[in-house]
């Protein structure tokens, strides 16, 4: 899910990553609206508000919104910075896992703060929203960067546009039979459903378990990290102890690589 990047990723890798991260993004966005009255998984609305506050001459509010947007951008920057500066296979997994770990740390911090220290002042609200925006920036930067912009999970504007275009393309038979386009549409649909599901789950959970919802979101993100970690451990074990299984594993990896090369070639031809 995390260790492969760009064109080496399979459809299955993108589906797993997309569905889990979209689920967490949907949860984060809904809970931030419920608790803080601010969106945290997208910045389109913030740009509109920024323009509105500047027009009204509300410089305090405009500054707060600008800093929120800047922090979301910094999350994206930090994520991609870690990815492009990683090299070997193990450090690549680590580089891809660090943004998720940081995201978990931010969300758990918000959860703990809400439970034990939150006095509902505006200053606290602004800082906690900024932290959640940073977390979402990290996640968006990671998913977009490692999937070659195939997976974007924190906002749905571009996704809905792409999906609508694909659906209109499917009115022609030649596109309906194009496996790559069908897979892309399936991936977008899965992300859309996961995001919605995340929002609904967070809404229900918040009224049942309040700030513990942040731990539930962190649990979803832990699955993203641990899934690849367990696979890496398995690979390590296989390469040391089981030469025959290793042979099988290498063959499987080669088949997957060849499949990706074919897809890439098809994409270029298309």
């Amino acid at each position: 899910m995390l260790k492969k990047y760009s064109n080496f990723r399979t459809f299955s890798d993108n589906v797993k990553l997309g569905s889990l991260t979209a689920l967490s993004a949907g949860m984060v966005n809904v809970i931030s609206v419920i608790v803080f009255f601010a969106f945290t998984s997208n910045v389109t609305g913030h740009f509109t508000i920024l323009a509105q506050e500047i027009t009204k001459g509300n410089w305090y509010q405009a500054s707060v919104v600008f800093i929120w947007v800047a922090i979301f951008c910094f999350g994206n920057f930090a994520s991609n910075y870690l990815i492009i500066h990683s090299s070997s296979r193990i450090s690549r997994y680590l580089a891809h896992a660090i943004p998720v770990i940081l995201e978990i740390v931010c969300l758990i911090f918000v959860g703990i703060y809400l439970q034990h220290f939150y006095k509902e002042t505006l200053e606290e609200t602004e800082i906690l929203v900024a932290l959640m925006l940073f977390a979402m920036g990290l996640q968006n930067g990671l998913t977009a960067s490692i999937s070659n912009s195939m997976v974007k999970t924190t906002h749905l504007t571009g996704l809905v546009t792409d999906l609508s275009i694909l659906l209109s393309m499917f009115t022609k038979k030649e596109y309906r039979e194009n496996k790559e386009l069908v897979n892309k549409a399936r991936l977008l649909m899965i992300i859309l459903i996961s995001y919605m599901a995340g929002g609904i789950i967070a809404g229900i959970l918040y009224y049942k378990i309040q700030s513990y919802t942040f731990y539930a979101i962190s649990f979803v993100l832990c699955i993203v990290i641990l899934y690849d970690y367990s696979k890496l451990r398995l690979q390590k074990y296989i390469s040391r102890k089981q030469p025959l299984v290793r042979k099988h594993y290498i063959e499987e990896e080669t088949r997957e690589l060849n499949y990706n090369k074919n897809i890439l070639q098809m994409h270029r031809d298309y």
Binding site: Y60, Q61, S63, F66, I67, A70, L122
Partner: peptide, 20 residues
């Protein structure tokens, strides 16, 4: 420019009265 904007916004927040 970005750093200046960021610092500028920080100063505005510090100096001006919040709605609260």
């Amino acid at each position: 420019v970005l750093a200046a904007l960021f610092i500028g916004c920080g100063i505005v927040i510090q100096k001006s009265d919040s709605p609260e």
